[in-house]
Amino acid sequence: MNIRRAVQADLPKLLEIYNYEVINGVATFDTEPFTLAQRQPWFDAHNVANHPLIVAEVNGVPAGYATLSSFNSKAAYDSTVELSIYVDQACRGKHVGRELMSAILDLAREDSRTHRVVSIITGTNEASIALHKKFGFRYAGTITEAGFKKGRYLDVGYWELAV
């Protein structure tokens, strides 16, 4: 497995990974798949400032990705970033998420502009919760029934890590 910064050529596969979760899962509260053109601004907002976008590559193909994104648009929040990790459904259970988490947190710790990493995790996502606990994230609270997807209301938990 090779962990590296994402490049433009990765975008179609990253979009495929994300859209799979949009359609089939509840890790994101987006409900409609994105097109490449719609996802381009998201891509362009990364690998600038303290917002890296990294890829776990297996056999030359992205198997997953991790980002640190803006947590809130207000300037005082600039040192707090939101973590997201998505793994191709065919590569789950193969430690891709763990390797991405380790690498993205290393980047956060190396960047003096980053003070806190926050993750917003759907309450039913036990694998993500376990991964965050393993890396020392602290549970910060739940917003109950924050979103409606797949015919049900879903809670979201907030997890944080000082870096």
Score class of each variant (00 low, 15 high):
78 D>W: 08
76 A>C: 15
6 A>K: 06
153 Y>N: 08
76 A>Y: 15
118 V>L: 03
99 E>D: 15
97 G>L: 12
37 A>Q: 15
29 F>S: 03
107 L>A: 11
112 S>G: 13
97 G>T: 12
54 I>A: 05
8 Q>R: 15
29 F>N: 10
15 L>K: 09
62 P>H: 02
112 S>A: 15
65 Y>P: 00
98 R>E: 13
157 G>L: 00
122 T>V: 12
44 D>A: 10
51 H>R: 10
124 T>P: 10
37 A>F: 02
149 K>D: 01
11 L>K: 08
59 N>W: 00
28 T>R: 00
84 S>D: 11
45 A>W: 01
114 T>M: 05
69 S>H: 02
110 E>H: 13
141 G>Q: 02
56 A>V: 03
151 G>W: 07
100 L>H: 08
88 D>Y: 12
35 T>Y: 11
83 L>V: 07
75 A>R: 11
8 Q>P: 05
50 N>P: 00
161 L>M: 08
96 V>F: 03
61 V>A: 05
114 T>Y: 13
94 K>D: 00
96 V>L: 04
138 R>N: 03
57 E>M: 06
55 V>M: 11
43 F>W: 13
134 K>R: 13
92 R>M: 11
61 V>I: 15
93 G>L: 12
68 L>C: 04
100 L>T: 08
122 T>Q: 08
34 F>I: 01
80 T>F: 01
59 N>K: 04
143 I>T: 02
48 V>A: 06
88 D>S: 12
161 L>Q: 14
38 Q>T: 05
11 L>W: 05
129 I>Q: 05
101 M>W: 09
153 Y>E: 01
6 A>W: 03
58 V>T: 10
145 E>F: 06
111 D>I: 06
52 P>W: 09
44 D>L: 09
109 R>S: 06
24 N>V: 04
48 V>N: 12
13 K>L: 08
83 L>S: 08
42 W>P: 01
23 I>F: 04
131 L>M: 12
47 N>Y: 07
41 P>W: 04
138 R>T: 09
10 D>A: 07
136 G>S: 13
69 S>G: 15
99 E>R: 15
22 V>M: 10
60 G>E: 06
115 H>T: 04
128 S>F: 01
26 V>L: 11
59 N>R: 14
83 L>K: 07
135 F>Q: 01
109 R>Q: 14
78 D>T: 10
133 K>A: 06
157 G>Q: 11
113 R>E: 07
68 L>T: 04
18 Y>C: 10
47 N>K: 03
142 T>L: 00
142 T>E: 14
9 A>H: 09
27 A>R: 14
20 Y>N: 02
33 P>Y: 13
62 P>L: 13
4 R>L: 01
88 D>E: 13
121 I>M: 02
103 A>W: 02
71 F>E: 03
145 E>C: 13
62 P>E: 12
129 I>Y: 03
148 F>G: 01
18 Y>W: 12
35 T>M: 06
75 A>P: 04
77 Y>T: 02
43 F>A: 15
157 G>E: 12
4 R>D: 07
38 Q>Y: 10
131 L>Q: 11
123 G>P: 01
55 V>E: 00
13 K>Y: 03
85 I>S: 08
156 V>C: 13
46 H>F: 11
139 Y>Q: 00
50 N>G: 11
131 L>E: 03
149 K>I: 04
84 S>I: 03
79 S>W: 07
66 A>P: 05
117 V>T: 02
53 L>V: 08
14 L>I: 09
102 S>G: 14
10 D>G: 10
91 C>D: 14
81 V>Y: 00
